[in-house]
Lab assay of single mutants.
Amino acid sequence: GPGLTDLFKTEKAAVKKMAKAIMADPSKADDVYQKWADKGYTLTQLSDFLKSKTRGKYDRVYNGYMTYR
């Protein structure tokens, strides 16, 4: 089956995709945050998933999740 690194890459891609969806349409934020909360994502995990070469690119999404939880 898929190894943990593959799983991480898949999760990371999914999280980034959802983060971009929030940035494009902030009204989606609560739905996405709820999904992440259901998956039990911690802020540390989210921070790892949303690492970007562009500093602060996903800060709004991260901060939103922090206040959501």
Rank of each mutant, 00 (worst) to 15 (best):
G3V: 13
K28G: 06
D31N: 08
P26Q: 07
K35C: 14
Y41K: 01
K53H: 09
D48F: 15
Y65S: 00
L4Y: 10
K39C: 11
D59V: 08
L4P: 12
G64Q: 03
G3T: 14
Y65I: 01
D6F: 04
T54S: 10
L43A: 07
R60P: 09
L46E: 00
L43G: 07
S47T: 11
K35G: 08
Y33G: 00
K51H: 08
G3D: 14
K35Q: 14
T42Q: 03
S52C: 09
T54E: 11
F8R: 11
F8T: 08
V15M: 03
V32F: 04
A13Y: 08
G64C: 04
G3I: 13
S27W: 07
T10F: 09
D30M: 11
A29V: 03
A19M: 03
R55M: 10
G1F: 10
A21C: 11
K57Q: 08
V32M: 06
F8Y: 15
L7M: 12
S47D: 06
K53S: 10
V61C: 02
L50M: 03
G56K: 05
A21T: 09
T10E: 13
D25F: 05
K17L: 11
L50G: 01
L50V: 02
T67V: 14
D38L: 10
D48Q: 15
T5K: 14
A21K: 08
Y58L: 03
D6N: 08
K57N: 05
L43N: 05
K53Y: 06
K9L: 08
A24L: 12
T42K: 04
T10S: 13
V15I: 06
K28R: 11
K51A: 09
V15E: 01
Q34V: 05
P26C: 08
D25C: 11
D25P: 01
N63S: 10
D31L: 10
D38A: 13
K28M: 13
T67M: 15
W36G: 00
M18W: 07
G1P: 12
K16Y: 04
T42M: 03
K35N: 10
Q34G: 10
K51I: 09
S52V: 08
D31W: 11
Y68I: 02
Q34F: 06
Y33F: 08
A24N: 12
K20P: 00
K53W: 05
I22E: 00
S27E: 08
L7T: 14
G3E: 13
T67P: 02
G40C: 06
F49Q: 01
A37W: 15
T42D: 05
K35W: 08
Y58R: 01
W36Y: 01
T44V: 12
T44N: 13
G56H: 09
P26F: 08
A19P: 01
A14R: 13
Y58G: 00
Y65A: 01
K53C: 08
I22A: 07
K16I: 15
A21Y: 09
N63K: 15
Y41L: 10
K35H: 10
M66H: 08
K51N: 09
K12A: 14
T10V: 11
R55C: 13
K35E: 14
V61G: 01
K51C: 15
P26G: 05
S27G: 07
K17S: 08
Y33R: 01
Y33C: 01
Y62A: 05
R55D: 10
G56D: 08
A37T: 09
T10L: 11
L4S: 12
K39Y: 09
E11S: 04
R55F: 09
R69E: 04
I22L: 09
R60N: 11
K39H: 08
S47A: 14
P26T: 05
R69L: 15
Y41S: 01
K57P: 04
M23I: 11
M66D: 07
Y41I: 11
Y65E: 01
K35I: 15
S52P: 06
G1M: 10
D6E: 10
Y58C: 02
K12I: 06
A37Y: 14
T5R: 13
S52K: 04
M18F: 04
A13N: 07
Y33W: 03
K51Y: 08
P26W: 14
K20T: 05
A21L: 14
L43I: 07
L4V: 14
K35F: 13
D25V: 03
V15Q: 00
